[in-house]
């Protein structure tokens, strides 16, 4: 349904005075999403995972330049097509209730989302009623203002905004941080249900545990590249292909809680070779010569020359 290949995004920023510099924030991202599956995008802050969402929705800032191929339902996703499709065929579940208009009742806002996606006023009203009922939101919730709904309800309202659009692709950007574990679990379950209803879901998160609860496949991002695409089952089974994904798994407190030292390379001065090279225990001369390509391995993908089946 969605296929992204070799996506690159560069920002032009002002340094001091009139001098400008180039920031390569996304170097080489590849990802595909099929109807009916949840693909989790996992990475640290600064790995480019939120920018991916912005690119898909066509809301990158003016000083960004985009390269590479993105196609949605078989056709290239141009900036014009992004504008046409966002809110209709591609929907975003925002991170928090603060994305809603604080001065407008939530029911109206969700209804407006449905209308903007093409439904008539009457249709929109019934859709909203049905959706709220499905998420156990009492009828009175629709008449409340965003500050009046509790954390758990707020999440369900935010999920509703995506559901009423009939969007085929739903992007959820960091839906869990700051939530009580039970509410987080419930929110994730709603995303799972969206996929079971035949939609494609991209779950953007820094939290592997959350991702593994519902994802079919997990794409691990590092410094603006896809370093690995693995089945969710590969994590607990120890079948991970890339040293960074292995490190992420090992660093979980319930596992070994041991980190790899160092930090992501700066987008201003990326190394010539493998972007993970300076932190990798297996680094060799070949890695530092040129950036390894993303290659298929054991029904997954990996960007590492050392990975073996």
């Amino acid at each position: 349904m969605l296929s992204i290949s070799q996506l690159a995004i560069r920002f032009t920023q002002y340094d001091r005075g009139l001098r400008r510099k180039q920031l390569q924030v996304i170097t080489d991202l590849s990802l595909s999403v099929e109807a009916g599956e949840v693909v989790a995008v996992v990475g640290s802050s600064g790995s480019g995972k939120s920018l991916l969402a912005h690119a898909l929705l066509g809301i990158l800032p003016d000083n960004a330049q985009q390269q590479g191929q993105v196609s949605f339902l078989g056709e290239p996703l141009t900036p014009e097509r992004c504008r046409q499709l966002r809110g209709k065929a591609i929907a975003l579940i925002p991170q928090s209730i603060s994305s809603l208009d604080p001065l407008m009742q939530v029911g109206h806002q969700v209804q407006r989302v449905a209308q903007l996606a093409g439904a008539s006023q009457a249709e929109a009203r019934t859709t909203v009623g049905r959706t709220f009922a499905r998420y156990d939101l009492p009828k009175s919730t629709g008449d409340r203002y965003p500050f009046q709904v509790s954390g758990g309800m707020a999440r369900r309202v935010l999920v509703s905004t995506a559901v009423v659009t009939q969007a085929q692709l739903v992007i959820a950007d960091e839906p869990t941080p700051g939530l009580h574990p039970d509410v987080a679990k419930e929110t994730l379950q709603h995303l799972r249900e969206l996929a079971q209803g035949g939609r494609g879901v991209i779950l953007i998160t820094h939290d592997i545990e959350a991702a593994l609860q519902i994802a079919d496949r997990v794409a691990v991002f590092y410094a603006g590249t896809t370093v690995e695409i693995a089945a969710a089952a590969d994590f607990p089974a120890g079948n991970l292909r890339h040293p960074y994904s292995q490190a992420l798994w090992r660093a979980l407190p319930q596992n070994e809680f041991i980190p790899v030292p160092g930090s992501q390379p700066s987008p201003e001065a990326l190394p010539r070779g493998c972007l993970f090279g300076d932190r990798c225990p297996q680094v060799s001369e070949v890695c530092q010569m040129e950036r390894p390509p993303l290659r298929p391995l054991n029904q997954g993908w990996v960007r590492c020359v050392h990975a073996e089946g």
Partner: peptide, 16 residues
């Protein structure tokens, strides 16, 4: 919630 917004590796590194 010092590391609630961070990935597992950075979390482990900071706590270490």
């Amino acid at each position: 919630e010092m590391t609630a917004m961070l990935d597992a590796n950075t979390q482990a590194l900071i706590w270490q």
